[in-house]
Design a protein around this nucleic acid. Structure first.
Ligand SMILES: [Mg+2]
Ligand SMILES: [Mg+2]
Lengths: 435, 435
DNA sequence: CCAATGGGG
DNA sequence: CCCCCATTG
């Protein structure tokens, strides 16, 4: 659906023109209350309607039309209660991070469908209970829904960017039980964006572990192949940011890991170029690569498996990635999970091998232990997936020092395995990265 | 004119399908006599007609129609005699290299116009008398015309690629008086080309100088922005080839310079990326940069100055470039003319400054002394330029050793200056390369 | 052989 | 949010 992208640009243009206009009327200014809404969660009423019925939505079907009008959205109590029940379960010990572009720009089915898709996302979050959730393409009604106490707002702190140029943006959810923001979140503009993209990050203390604080960042990098040049600039900015964050002294200690997860719209070629710009030996790792490049968890945007956009073409890409820097990524041999998947099958095989016997190789610092795709089931009653992207779920371990046999790491690894988190390597061979 | 590019791809596709077809009939095979024609110059008759009347074209106007039919092309004797007269003049001492995409795919005006444009190119060649001419977008009738003894065939040896996949290709002309091929020319395929592009090169002895042999290469790299990835691969292949050629022992000594000139369709961004791939310190120089980045000689494809394609838009690019490696380029400080124009005005100013007082800075080896655009006048009687590209003319000097005060170099430089070869730097400031 | 846009697969 | 193609400026 190109119209979506067209709409983005159009909205961007309008916004731009509006911003450069002589001076908007009061009415026009009221429109810009949006960023204000974002600045102070919990949610409030917006011109968009989806959240407006949230607090007191009756469980019965919509009063009039067979197809609910776009202004009347029913939030089924069963869904929110189901989510609440899941959230009442104890959080897993394992530290997980989920990144997901929830396709807030998909208008198929209107507000009702958006609500259903959002609840499906929320349910996945409640099931996996990541310590942090990185979202992209969040729009105000979706944010209001997710941030509601009846959905995720009771369990997660919602972090949003300052002054998003367009009414779709990124967000970070922090599990209040396990992460506490150590500073106000930071929003960085991408100076060259034409699509209103930003870099959002937050430094957080890990509450239930001895581990050092982490910096968690997300972005929705400039979309489409045509914008590769700008996208590379954005990635470079992000990665330099990660580098500047790692090791920085914060109130809870020194930052032990800096990660960027998101819909990065990247092609391997572009990553390679940026990596070169950054300098080799940057220690940058790609979580998917570090987890052995599991073929079954590879394609995060796949029109052959995901029917949401109704594509008449087949395209598989790995747009959604999680990059990180940590003591582990810096100290590990190059083979571990460097951002650039070496073209050589041998190097890949070695990396995969290293990953498989990770427990046998002592090393310290934050490191990923598994990588899996999420959201691959259609939303019941909707017949569509939660998003046109799969979510990417990573699990993490931390251990203090190589000389100590880090029992925690072994435990989390074992747990990950027990939960079927894709620890088993795919049987795919070291083929060249194609996307 | 998009049709041209479309035609290229279409022809490529047809060719491909044809090649993969069960087995062509005899008639279809006859079609592939084309490469054979190329393999053995001097020219022969082709299905295309332009050359068929060359040897005995009467100077009178076409017998029937007011507009000559595409099958009847008249080569004005005055034009060829003019060219011959120019060629009878003594060749300049200065070593010059010209590269020009002669737009053989431009069909405006039919065979007659093509002939006129070709003769204009030939006349420029006869005037400047480059030791080597690198041509792109040559098509069979154009080649036949240029290679004819009545045009350039008496003075220049014509080198063409083996088995061009499509009936437009590159060619190298070597002034028989000043260059002698030391080996059979080499043709390298670009494995990923969709447009039938090849790398053609020849090692040649410089007959009238003590200078070491040179390797002269040309290519027409994959066109259009969309094909940047393939184009970068092609450039990398070319530059690695140059590197492998420099210093190679040939029958006349060791190769003292390896140059690649052509319609490289490059954007600075792409050059930068390939340069990184190649490794810094490769010593690669861009002749235009090495000559002080003269602003007036910058844009080789410029729809505001060149009306041939009838563009309703303005676009200035530096598609046509000449890269080289030589003892000079390897030994010179980075500022001299590295392929990547540093974004910093300071570095550029330094490079320009170095160029201006080149005579005062002793250095040895092959080096460019001037850079100028050619073909900027419309063809009389046609009202169009010889090509949609300007030609790029470089002048070169060689000197044996830095300790010797190289009188030869000073002489050639002085001569270049005297001939107004753009030695004077432009007054443009060190602005960032924009194309 | 430019960039931006829109349709179709 | 893929690629190719065609049109427009
Ligand atoms: Mg999207
Ligand atoms: Mg052309």
């Amino acid at each position: 659906m190109d119209p979506q992208l067209r709409a983005i640009r159009q909205a961007a243009r309008e916004k731009f023109l509006q911003a450069n206009a002589p001076k908007p009327s009061k009415a026009a200014v009221a429109d810009s209350a949006l960023p204000e809404f974002l600045a102070h969660l919990p949610p409030e009423r917006l011109q968009q309607s989806i959240g407006s019925l949230l607090a007191d939505a009756p469980p019965e079907p919509p009063p009039k039309r067979a197809k609910p009008s776009p202004d009347v959205v029913v939030i089924p109590k069963e869904r929110t209660e189901e989510i609440q029940a899941l959230l009442r379960q104890p959080a897993p010990k394992e530290f997980r991070v989920l990144s997901w572009n929830i396709d807030g720009l998909d208008e198929v089915g209107g507000a009702q469908a958006l609500m259903q898709r959002c609840l499906a996302v929320a349910k996945e979050v409640a099931i996996q209970r990541p310590a942090a959730v990185l979202l992209q393409e969040v729009i105000p009604p979706a944010l209001e829904l997710l941030a509601s106490p009846k959905v995720l707002g009771g369990t997660y702190e919602v972090v949003v960017p300052k002054d998003p140029p367009l009414p779709y943006y990124v967000a970070i959810l922090l599990d209040k039980q396990r992460l506490r923001a150590l500073e106000p979140p930071s929003t960085a503009a991408f100076p060259g964006t034409q699509m209103g993209r930003q870099l959002l990050s937050v430094a957080a203390k890990v509450l239930d572990a001895e581990a050092p604080p982490v910096v968690i960042a997300t972005a929705h990098l400039e979309s489409t192949k045509d914008h590769g040049v700008e996208r590379k600039r954005q990635l470079l900015q992000c990665l330099r940011f990660l580098r500047s964050e790692l090791g920085r002294a914060v109130s809870g200690g020194r930052v032990g890991a800096a990660m960027l997860g998101g819909d990065l719209n990247l092609r391997d070629e572009e990553v390679k170029a940026v990596q070169k710009e950054l300098g080799d030996g940057s220690g940058l790792c790609d979580a998917w690569v570090a987890c052995g490049s599991p073929e079954n968890e590879r394609w995060t945007w796949d029109t052959s498996a995901n029917t949401n956009i109704g594509a008449s073409f087949v395209c598989k890409t790995r747009f959604d990635r999680l990059f990180f820097l940590s003591d582990w990524s810096l100290s590990s041999p190059k083979a571990r999970g460097m951002a650039i998947a070496s073209g050589k099958a041998k190097a890949k095989a070695k990396a995969k091998d290293l990953f498989q016997k990770a427990e046998a190789v002592p090393c310290d610092g934050w490191r990923p232990t598994s990588f899996a795709l999420l959201g691959k089931a259609k939303v019941p009653g909707l017949g569509r997936f939660p998003s046109d992207h799969w979510g990417i779920l990573t699990s993490w371990a931390w251990s203090e020092a190589p000389q100590a046999p880090e029992p925690a790491a072994a435990a989390t690894s074992a747990e990950a395995k027990a939960k079927g988190f894709g620890l088993k390597p795919s049987d795919g061979e070291g083929a060249i990265d194609l996307d």
